[in-house]
Design a protein around this nucleic acid. Sequence first.
DNA 1: TATGAATGAGGCTTCATTCAT
DNA 2: AATGAATGAAGCCTCATTCAT
Lengths: 190, 190, 190, 190
Amino acid sequence: MRHKDENKNEAIFQATIQLLNEIGFSDISMSKIAKRANVSPSTIYVYFKNKEDMLGKLYTNVKQKMSTQILAGIDDTIPVKIAFERVLRNQIEFIFNHKDEFLFLEQFSNSPLIQNLCLEDPSWMFHPLFELVDRGREQKLLKECDTMLLLVLIHAPVSALVKQHFNGEFELNEKNIKDMIQMSWDAIKA
Amino acid sequence: MRHKDENKNEAIFQATIQLLNEIGFSDISMSKIAKRANVSPSTIYVYFKNKEDMLGKLYTNVKQKMSTQILAGIDDTIPVKIAFERVLRNQIEFIFNHKDEFLFLEQFSNSPLIQNLCLEDPSWMFHPLFELVDRGREQKLLKECDTMLLLVLIHAPVSALVKQHFNGEFELNEKNIKDMIQMSWDAIKA
Amino acid sequence: MRHKDENKNEAIFQATIQLLNEIGFSDISMSKIAKRANVSPSTIYVYFKNKEDMLGKLYTNVKQKMSTQILAGIDDTIPVKIAFERVLRNQIEFIFNHKDEFLFLEQFSNSPLIQNLCLEDPSWMFHPLFELVDRGREQKLLKECDTMLLLVLIHAPVSALVKQHFNGEFELNEKNIKDMIQMSWDAIKA
Amino acid sequence: MRHKDENKNEAIFQATIQLLNEIGFSDISMSKIAKRANVSPSTIYVYFKNKEDMLGKLYTNVKQKMSTQILAGIDDTIPVKIAFERVLRNQIEFIFNHKDEFLFLEQFSNSPLIQNLCLEDPSWMFHPLFELVDRGREQKLLKECDTMLLLVLIHAPVSALVKQHFNGEFELNEKNIKDMIQMSWDAIKA
DNA sequence: TATGAATGAGGCTTCATTCAT
DNA sequence: AATGAATGAAGCCTCATTCAT
C-alpha cells in the first residue's frame, strides 16, 4: 500500500495560499487549487474532509508557523524593551519572507469564514507575548492599560504598514522601521 | 445616470453588505443578494453592469460615507490635537453605528478583489487628514516622520481594537477608548 | 417575464420514467434526464428543488394517474362482482397502455427511496377500493378476511403476471386473463 | 476458484444487502460497501471483477439460498395440497428470517439491472415447483390453467403481503396467514 | 423598470477503479 | 491476499448572466 505523501499536503497548502492572494475567496476553487498543486481534485479529499476542513487546517498551520517565528528568542529573562523590539523585528522579517502567508492570514481573519469555521481559539500561541506585556507593566515600564490594548499598539501598526508597503503606497525602509518601532514604544511606555 | 427607484439600489447594497458579513465572498451569489434585497436577480442588472461593477460601486459608496463622517468637523482652523482626537472619536462612532459597513470595508480591503477591480485611488477622500498631519508636523507637535507612518499610528490601532471588540475578545469601553487615544497621541507626538 | 412551460415539466417526467426503466436508479443522472428531455440540467432545478423532490413528485403524479384509471367506472351502485372484474380489467388496460409508468412504479415502490422520501401516504387514492371490498364482505359475497388481504389477492397476481408477460416468460392473452380473473375471484369469494 | 477468506466474501455480500435496503441503488457505492464490510475498497476487487459482477453473484447467491429453503421437504411423493402449504410456509419462514435478503431480491428483480446484467435464467432453481403444479393439475386437484398462472397465484400474494407487513400497513399474524393460504388454495384448486 | 424562466459553465464532492506496496 | 493512496470521470447542484415578456 502506498504511503501518504507529505509533499502533497504542503503543495495543496501552498497552492491555496498563492491562489487566494491572486484571485481571492470569491474565485478560488478546488479544481484550480488542484491544478496549481499538480494533483487531481480528488486527491485533495484524501488529505482533507472538504474545502472548509482544508482551509481551517491551513489557517491553523500558517498561524502556528508565524507565531513561532515571531516569538523566536523571547523568554522571560530578556529585558522587556529588548524583547519588544525583537518581536517587532521578528514580525517584520516573517512578513517580508512570507508575504503570501501573511496576506492569506489577513484575508482569512477578516472574512466571516473564520467564525463560521469554529476553529479553536489560537490565542494560546501568543501566550508568551501576553506574559511579556504583563511583565513590562509590573516593572512600571509600560502603561497601566489593558493587556490587549498594549498588544494591539504593538502589532496593528506594523501589520498595517507592511500592507501599505506591499500595495506600493508606502516604503517600509530601515528608517521608517526605526521610526515605527520608536512610535510603538512611545505609545506603550509608561 | 439616475435610476427611478433609489431604494432598490440601496436595498441591493445593504443586502450585499449583510450577506458578505454573514457568509463571505466565497459563498455569496447574485441570487442570494437578490433574495435578501427582495428583488429579482435580473433587477440587479438594471442597476449594475455585473457583479464586479456592483461590488466596486458598493465599496466606493461605503468608503465615501465613512470618510465623510470621519472628517466631520475637521478643517485647518481646528487645533491639531483637538482635530486628532475628534477624528478618532468620529471613527469609533462611525464604526459602532455602522458595524456592517465597517466589517465589509475591512473584508474587501484585505481581499485581492480590490486590486483586481482597478478602482480609482480613493485616498483623496482622506486628503484633509494628510493636511492635518502635515500641519501638526510643521507646528512641531508631531514627530518628524513620514506622513503615512503618522496616519497609520492613528488609524490602525482603533480599527484593530474595534474588531477585537466585535469578536468579544476585548471590551472597548470609555476607559479603554481614552487609554487608546492617549497611546496613539504619545506615539505620534513630537 | 417568461411563463413556466408545462411541457417541460412533463418532458422531465417522461424522460425520467424512460431512463429509469432503461438503466435504473443506479445509473440514472440529472444530466442524462436533461439530455433526454431536451432541456438544460439546470432547467430541472427551475421546476424541482432537487433530485429527490423531482422523483417524489413524479411518483405521486404517476400513482395518481394510475389510481384514477383503475377506479374508472367504479361507484357504490355497481354490483360487487362487476366492479371487481372492472377493476382488474382497468388495471390490465392501464398497465398495457402505460408500461413505462407501471414499471417505474414497481421499481420505485421496491426501493428504499420511497420510505426515505417521506411521501404522504397515498392510500387515500384507493379509498373506493377499500369501500368496494367492505361492501362485498357485508353482502356475504366475499370472505370474512382482513380488507388488505382481499385487496392483495386481487392486485398482486395481476401485477406479477404482467411483469412476467413483459419479461417474455409468460403470455398474458385473453384466455389467461380470464383464467386469472376467475382465480382471483375464487380466492376472495365467500 | 476458491478464495482464502470466505468470511470476507460473505461480509461484502451482507454489507451490500444491508446498504441496498437502507439507501438503495442510487446511493450505494463501493466505498460505502467496503466501509460497512470492514474491508478496503480494493479488497472487493480481489473477490470480484467489478461492481456489476459482484451484484450479479450476490443476486444468484441469494436467489439460490431462498429457493433451497422454499423447496425444503418437497418431493414428488408428498401429496399436492400438503406440498402446496409447505411451500407457502417455507416462503414465509424464509422471508421473516431473512428480511434483508428478501427485500434485496425484490428490489433487484424490479430494477432493469437484472436484464442488463444478462444473468443466466434462474428458473431451474424452482423446477420442483413446476413439477408440483403439473402433478396437481394432472391429478385434477388444480385448475386447468397455465402453470405460470398457478404459480403466481401461489407466490405473488404472500410476497405482497409480507412487504405490507414490513411497511407496517398490515399485520401478517397466524390468522391472516391461514386465511391467505386458504385463499391461495381456493384460487388454484380445481 | 422589473421580473421569473432559462441556461452553459463551473462549483464541490464522490465515484469506480487502479496503483504500489 | 490485502490495502490505503491516487485519480479521471462524473455525480448533483448553483453560478452569473441573458431572455422574453
